[in-house]
Amino acid sequence: MASFLESPSAIIMRCCILVTMVHSLCACMCQPSHPQQRYCKANFVLTGHVLEKNPIDDIQLRGRFGQFEYVVNVDKIFKETENLRKSASRFPLSILTSPGDSLCGPKSLKIGSKYLITGSIVDGELHISSCDWIEEWRDVTQHQKKGIKHFYNAYCSQCTIQSTTGRWRQTGEGSSGGCIYDPSPSMVDGVEDCQALYATCITQQGEGCQWYHRGNDYQDCINRNKPYYQGVETMQSVSFPIMDDDVMT
C-alpha cells in the first residue's frame, strides 16, 4: 500500500497542475456579445491591413511568453485615445495577442488582409483576444459598418444590451431601457445571427431603447432561418439618417 502513497510535495504539484489547467480552460470563456456590445466595451476600434506577424522574442518578453505581435497599417480609427491617434499617424501599430485559442488568442490574421479590430489598451500597449470583435472587413455587413461609424458609439451610454440564452446570461446589464440579445439560434443551431448582423439597439423619438433595423435585410434573415427565431424580441424598422459616406468599403 505504501508504494501507492504520494509525498506531500507530489500532491501539491498535482494540485498546481490541475489549477493551471482549469484556469487555462476557463480564461477564455467569452460571454456571447452583440457587435454593439463589443464596440462599446473596447478601448479602441479600427480597420487596417495586417503587414506582419512576429513572435515576441526573449528580449521583449516582460512576462508575455508565447505572445505574438501583429504589425497593422491603420486605415481608419473609429474609437481611440489621444496616444493611439498620435501613434497611428506616425507609423504602423503594434498589436499584441496570446499565441492561440487556449490562451485567448484570436484565430491567426491573414497577412495583407484588411480587418476590423477591437481591443483593449493595457499599460499603453494594444491587446486583442478571442473575446474581441476581429473580422475581415469584407465580411462586416453594411448595417454593422453603419453602426461602427455612426450609431454604436452614440448609444453606448444610453442603451444596455443583455445577452441571454439557455446556457448563458450576463448579469448587471439589461433593463427596461435596454435590449435583449439572443445568440442561441447561431450558437446552438448554427444559423445566421440576424440580430448581430442587422440590428442596432437605439432610442427613437424619446422612447426607450429598442432593436431597430433598416430595410429588409433583418426580416429576410429571419425568413431564411425559420423556425429558429420564434420568440426573439421583435425588431422595429427605422429610417436611419442617410450619410454621404453611407456605404463603407
Rank of each mutant, 00 (worst) to 15 (best):
F68V: 05
T141Q: 03
D217G: 01
G172L: 14
M248P: 02
S7A: 15
V238W: 05
D193Q: 05
L5G: 05
E125K: 14
Q162F: 14
E207V: 02
Q204L: 11
P183K: 03
N225W: 05
E136T: 13
T171Y: 08
E136C: 06
P8A: 05
E136D: 12
Y198N: 13
S98R: 11
I59R: 14
T249R: 06
H127K: 09
V122P: 00
Q67K: 05
Q195I: 12
K79R: 13
K110H: 06
P227S: 10
G231Y: 12
W211M: 04
Q205I: 02
L103S: 10
V19C: 11
H34E: 09
T118R: 00
I12G: 12
Q204F: 12
G119K: 03
S130G: 11
Y218A: 04
A196T: 01
Q142H: 15
G206L: 01
K145L: 04
P106S: 08
G100N: 12
Q142C: 12
G208S: 14
Q142K: 15
N54R: 14
E69W: 03
Q162T: 15
E136K: 11
R138F: 00
F78C: 08
E233Q: 07
I77P: 01
L84F: 11
C16A: 13
G112P: 00
I117P: 00
Q210W: 02
T97C: 04
C201S: 04
T249M: 03
M235K: 10
D123I: 11
Q158N: 14
Y198P: 09
G178Y: 01
T203C: 04
K107D: 15
N225L: 08
P8G: 03
C156N: 11
G119N: 06
P183C: 04
M248E: 10
G105D: 07
G178P: 01
V22I: 15
A88C: 02
S176T: 09
I59E: 14
R167Y: 15
D101K: 08
S33V: 00
K79S: 05
A42S: 15
M13S: 15
K114V: 10
R38V: 02
V50Q: 04
T47L: 10
D246E: 13
K114C: 08
V140C: 12
V50H: 06
L51N: 07
V140L: 13
T165N: 08
T118P: 00
S108C: 07
D246N: 09
I111P: 05
K145P: 00
C26Q: 10
F151K: 04
A199Y: 02
D220M: 09
M13A: 15
V45H: 01
C30Y: 13
L96N: 05
T165R: 03
I148M: 02
H150N: 10
N54E: 11
K76Y: 07
H23N: 15
Q36V: 03
I95S: 00
V247R: 14
D75S: 06
A10D: 15
D245K: 01
I242N: 08
M187E: 09
Y155T: 03
A27P: 03
T97W: 03
F78D: 04
